[in-house]
Design a protein around this nucleic acid. Structure first.
Lengths: 247, 247
DNA sequence: CGACCTATTGATACGTATCAACCCGAGTGG
DNA sequence: CCACTCGGGTTGATACGTATCAATAGGTCG
């Protein structure tokens, strides 16, 4: 069930759809040329494990297409999603063998990979690269902390609203400019994944989505397509103050 | 109520107690000399606000002494602590005006500060500095994600046990080598702070601490001094798998 | 069409929040 | 030196939100 990518996989970085947002976004032509030499692509099918906690991971990568989740699991199987990788996000930890979470492909995922050691050399040589990676990591840290507020202090209703706002914003980003007012997007993940992301159960997720729909804060087409008629109203339901939206 | 620092505040970095763990830990003598020129110290008293979310913060800093909390607050006042700064931890966001959380001094806090712009220049010039900052940021991100598992999926009992394990480990780190078996340490924070860190209420925190004491997993001397007779047992109560402890 | 998987909806249980009383040690002032 | 107050901490009774268990619905694929 391989469907065509919107760009030539073996093509040059210049044609890469997420080049302007990825870790390489600040690199100049010469630096890109060097990276172009080293890069290779990998594909994962839906549900496949990309990496396991503690296991050695010999590459780092940028997500070109698809969605992956970062998961932490307790010894008795309770699962918490601690991050979502969308196109342009970075995967891997330079300077360390393994990750502290499992990485799972949600749908078909394409990664632009670099073997770890050569990438670490690149980081040393190419300041643009390290700066950008630091910046992206700081952004992730801010996002993780926003999410800690959600997990620790928000109600089920606020959690679901926040999750939808988060997704809406990130979809906007990927599509370029932010749109005000009504907008719609696809949920890239199942109810179970939403539950594991928000720290709820599937049933509670389902109920809260139904309630938000009944209150017309959202409408659904099927089970995966969401329309938000009034994003400000949804943001209010998310219980954030309005300095900014979640990432 | 200023009590003497264990080193001369105006002294050289060479005598700094947290130099080997801080952002400057990989710098050589020449680089340190340059930083030494730029640094200045600040002190905050218990309860004082160090920085507010969204407000411009014109410096970055390393904690030399004391404890500070990073807090996110909902519009209606629910508070979640999203990080604890202990000696050697870094505060501030290079490349951005403000922070996305409030920073509060828990007890008397001494910061080794740099004005932000000069520090950003330093980052450009001193690869050791940027590498170390990236590494510290990645560690914080891992810690934040561990904490997300706690907030989303752990029971009150596990949360308190995890919190105690976290503190015990970090105190060990600060004191050098890890000790196996029995150990004791001071809680640097109030019950309220523990509640805001674990996503519980004060009352639940108090109850769970009482229960752990009744079960002899910990013992208390007063309300702030904790002894852990069997750290492996406490770690088991924390519900983590044993690949590693929280940070 | 039937099998299967995911999602929804309902009834009940349980864990933690909430509300309230009490305890305790530290200051403070008579 | 003791009575009083005050803030933080503990303990108890009850309420409430979400988990759990169970049944049903809907979509997809053979």
């Amino acid at each position: 069930m391989t469907h065509a990518l919107p760009f030539d996989l073996e093509g040059h970085c210049a044609s890469c759809p997420i080049r302007h947002r990825a870790v390489c976004s600040r690199c100049d032509a010469e630096e890109l040329a060097r990276m172009n030499e080293l890069k290779f692509y990998r594909t994962y099918s839906p549900g496949q494990t990309v990496a396991l906690r503690g296991e050695t991971l010999d590459f780092v990568a940028t997500v070109v297409q698809g969605t992956a989740t970062l998961e932490r699991v307790t010894e008795d199987g309770r699962t918490q999603i601690v991050g979502i990788l969308l196109p342009s996000d970075f995967l891997g930890r330079p300077g360390r063998d393994g990750l502290s979470y499992d990485v799972m492909a949600v749908n078909e995922v394409k990664l632009c990979c670099f073997r770890r050691k050569p990438f670490e050399s690149l980081l040393d040589d190419v300041p643009h690269l390290q700066e950008r990676l630091l910046d992206m990591t700081l952004d992730e840290l801010d996002a993780a902390r926003d999410w800690m507020l959600l997990l620790g202090r928000k109600t089920a209703r606020e959690k679901i609203a926040s999750f939808l706002v988060l997704l809406a914003n990130r979809c906007d980003q990927l599509n370029g400019g932010k749109t005000r007012g009504s907008r719609h997007f696809d949920l890239p993940v199942s109810r179970e994944a939403i539950a594991n992301f928000t720290g709820l159960t599937i049933e509670t997720v389902s109920r809260q989505i139904s309630i938000l729909r009944r209150e017309q804060l959202i409408s659904l087409d099927g089970v995966r397509k969401v329309t938000v008629p009034d994003s400000a109203a949804l943001r209010r339901a998310a219980g954030d103050d309005d300095i900014n939206a979640l990432n």
